[in-house]
């Protein structure tokens, strides 16, 4: 057979994909993260990064921040499907280019090398208000909070200067001004 023959239709339309940050407020109960990420994997949505922690100890509420990529239709489906999950309270969706939203990601970077290279590396980190958490003659660990692409860039330029270990959180997001997201 020349072409594969299956019983299902082929995709015919491809919309433009865009990055979105989805914020989900959930009851912090057993299995809730599995429900959320299972929905993503089960329906074939992307997860580029994920950040989750309890934000209200009394009401047991957690805030999950997911960076994803998809066509407008897919993003819309993600929001609606998340909304159907029982432990989900509300879902917010921010475009990565939304000027009203703050995004931050935290990274810990370990650089090992000779003094000269270390100094050069520190200089490069300065621009991001890096905080040195640990320092030896041969190494340092620096904490950087910045946008994802800024950290990506930093990692690339630190590589030749002795960057040997990277640990990053997923992005977290918050609206600017006195507004709070309500649904």
């Amino acid at each position: 057979m020349s072409k594969p023959k299956s019983a299902y239709s082929q995709p015919t339309k491809f919309g433009k994909e865009d990055h979105h940050i989805i914020v989900v407020w959930v009851d912090n109960e057993a299995g809730v993260l599995a429900r959320v990420i299972g929905l993503f994997s089960g329906r074939g949505y992307n997860i580029e990064s994920l950040a989750v922690a309890e934000i209200d100890k009394i009401k047991h509420l957690s805030r999950i921040t997911i960076v994803t990529k998809g066509t407008p239709e897919v993003i819309q489906q993600i929001k609606l499907q998340l909304g159907k999950l029982i432990p989900v309270h509300k879902v917010a969706d921010f475009s990565r280019n939304d000027p009203k939203i703050l995004f931050k990601e935290l990274a810990l970077l370990k650089v090992v090398g000779a003094t000269k290279k270390l100094d050069k590396a520190k200089k490069l980190c300065k621009k991001h208000d890096g905080l040195i958490l640990d320092k030896t003659k041969k190494s340092f660990v620096i904490q950087v909070t910045a946008l994802r692409r800024e950290i990506d860039k930093l990692v690339t330029i630190l590589k030749p200067l002795g960057l040997i270990s990277v640990s990053r959180t997923g992005a977290v997001a918050m609206t600017k001004g006195d507004e709070v997201f309500t649904q």
């Binding site: 072409k3 023959k5 019983a7 299902y8 239709s9 082929q10």
Partner: peptide, 8 residues
């Protein structure tokens, strides 16, 4: 068509 055969 061949393309059609992949559908149902």
């Amino acid at each position: 068509s061949d393309e059609g055969k992949t559908l149902v």
